[in-house]
Amino acid sequence: MMVKTIFAGFGGQGVLMMGFTLAHGAMSAGYHVTFLPAYGAEVRGGTANCTVAVADEEIASPIASKPDHLVVLNTPSLYTFQNRVAAGGYLFINSSIITVDSSRHDVQIVKVPSSEIAEKLGNPRTANTVMMGAFLKKTGLVAPDDYLGSLEEVMGSKKKAIIEINRRAFAAGFEFLEEST
C-alpha cells in the first residue's frame, strides 16, 4: 500500500499542519511516511502546499506527480492541482471558500464546508482540522485515535484549550460526512 496526498491552500490556512499531523499520525501507526513541503520562491505569493506519502513499504519518491488524493482549501489550489489527481481518487474541496466546480468527472469529489463548520464551532482557524476529520473518515488512512494522539503531541506546548477545540473540529468534520453519506 502506498498512498500519496497533496494538501494545498493559502498560507495561513494550516495546509502544512494538515500534512505534518497526517504524516506524524501515520508514523505513530507504524507506517513509512514522507512529508515534502513546497519551498522557496514556489511558496512566495501566499500559497502553500505539501505532499504526504504513507506506505507499508520503503517510500521511493516523496513527490506525487499523480497523487491518490487531493485536499484543496482555496480556488487557486483547485486549478493548480485538480488535473493531477489519479482517476478514482478523492478530491476534497473546502466548499465554504471554493464555489466553482471541479472539471474532473473521474474522481470522487467530497465537498466539505470546513470554514463554516469551524466558524460555528467558534474558531475559524480550525477549518483545516475539520477537513482532516472528513479526510480520514473517507480515506481511512490513519485511525482517528492515532491522528488525534499525534495532533496532541505536535501541539504539545500549546494550551489545552486549543487542543480541545481541534478535537471538536476533527469530530465535526468526521461527523459531517457520516451525516451526509
Binding site: 511516511v33 514522507t34 515534502l36 519551498y39 516523496p62
Partner: peptide, 10 residues
Amino acid sequence: DGMMGQMMEP
C-alpha cells in the same frame, strides 16, 4: 539536495 533538506521522514 533540496528534496533531502526539505523532506520530513521518521
